[in-house]
Write a protein that binds this DNA or RNA. Structure first.
Lengths: 216, 216
DNA sequence: ACCCGGGTCAACCCTTCGATTGATCCCCGC
DNA sequence: GCGGGGATCAATCGAAGGGTTGACCCGGGT
């Protein structure tokens, strides 16, 4: 391996998190944070600026959430158009399957949770720099649906029901709100219970929320 | 001038964020992170441990979100019971009015957003150590301005019930789990519904979660 | 042509929930 | 020592939830 440290562009809207990422990444010496950005626009500008100096970053470490503006996913997509070979590592608080899929299809070379250890983070950056796709085992299993990982697939209609459920609506209210009968609501509910492996509406909401099937 | 540095207990479930907070807080010299914790239980234990060594923390900096276990709000409440005068500073990604109110009624001495600058963060800790309530102006205006104010206070027992509720337990199961009768569970439930302004258990869980009264 | 899955609906029956009222006990603060 | 709030329990009753079975329509794929 080369001795020159890898140049990293850090993108996160929280100064505190940037400081943390910088501390963790630089603590081993092989990595160097060449620049920081707090928005998607800043990130794009920083990459161009560094590249113009002949010091284009080797890896971009990007928070999936960038506050008000474009998300990390969007930023990744745009980066991919101008710098197709620049590896982007997405870091996120949540491991929702949909988020991981969105990240990967936006061109990210990896997806890490913020509760990853310092070592995992550094390794992931090194791997991304080498062009490998990085997905922690637990995420990979869920995303790829391997074996008994068996992520249940809820139909769009079932999601509708679930969202109403989370608001504490009764079957009657849900039926009225969606212009269907209570009988239909009950049927959907039973399907949902079966898919989520629960036995009542309250638990269904909790499970659905924990899997980010509904917002909240 | 060279007083002993303030001892800080850092509570956050993300190693990266802890590293960031530590870096920011210690960068000015007057503050020292005496211990870190990643869960509510660890936080309580850490405070007791430090106190037993005669080095009880001067300020606790606590993330409002602590992953799967009890939230920072809950941890703050519990800390308040055993260490009433220990200042707790809540840090959060979001500035929802309900979150701020929940934090303050849980006994927190301050509420900061994670996008605060390093200087703001350090100042806030110093102020909290001095016993002052810390609320950034923009948050303070929103909280004090628009208010129904009246945050309901749930009793510890009611929180117990609520947590069982969130797991989808039936009244019977809750009763068995807490060694009380269903009648008592129902009574608590009715009190909870009244305080939260809801009319069923599912909605109660949703509202409780949104106010960080329970984990999630 | 056939089947299958999603969405719709109905009838039946049993369980659970939620509201209400009223009661006892204990602890804490005034 | 009195009041109040928290925690405990009981009995009752109507409303809602949940399990089961069976049915129809539609669109897409074999």
């Amino acid at each position: 391996m080369s001795e020159a440290p890898l140049r990293i562009l850090l993108v996160d809207d929280h100064p505190v998190v940037r400081a943390g990422l910088r501390a963790v990444l630089e603590s081993a010496g092989r990595l160097r944070v060449a620049a920081e950005a707090s928005t998607a626009a800043e990130a794009l500008a920083a990459v161009d600026r560094l590249a113009a100096q002949g010091e284009g970053p080797d890896v971009v470490v990007m928070d999936i959430e960038l506050g008000q503006g474009p998300s990390g996913i969007e930023a990744t997509e745009r980066l991919g158009r101008t710098h197709p070979r620049l590896p982007v590592l997405i870091v996120s608080t949540y491991g929702a399957v949909s988020d991981v899929q969105a990240a990967v299809s936006a061109g990210a070379l990896g997806y890490l949770l913020k509760d990853a250890s310092a070592q995992e983070l550094r390794d992931a950056v090194a791997q991304a720099a080498a062009g490998s796709l990085i997905l922690p085992a637990h995420l990979a299993r869920r995303v790829l649906g391997g074996g008994d990982g068996a992520e249940p697939t809820l139909s769009p209609r079932e999601i509708d029901i679930l969202e109403q459920l989370a608001l504490g609506r009764t079957n009657q209210q849900i039926a009225a709100g969606l212009f269907i009968s209570q009988a239909t609501v009950k049927t959907h509910l039973n399907h949902i219970f079966g898919k989520l492996g629960v036995s009542n509406r309250t638990e269904a909401v909790t499970v659905a929320r924990s899997r980010h099937l509904i917002r909240g």
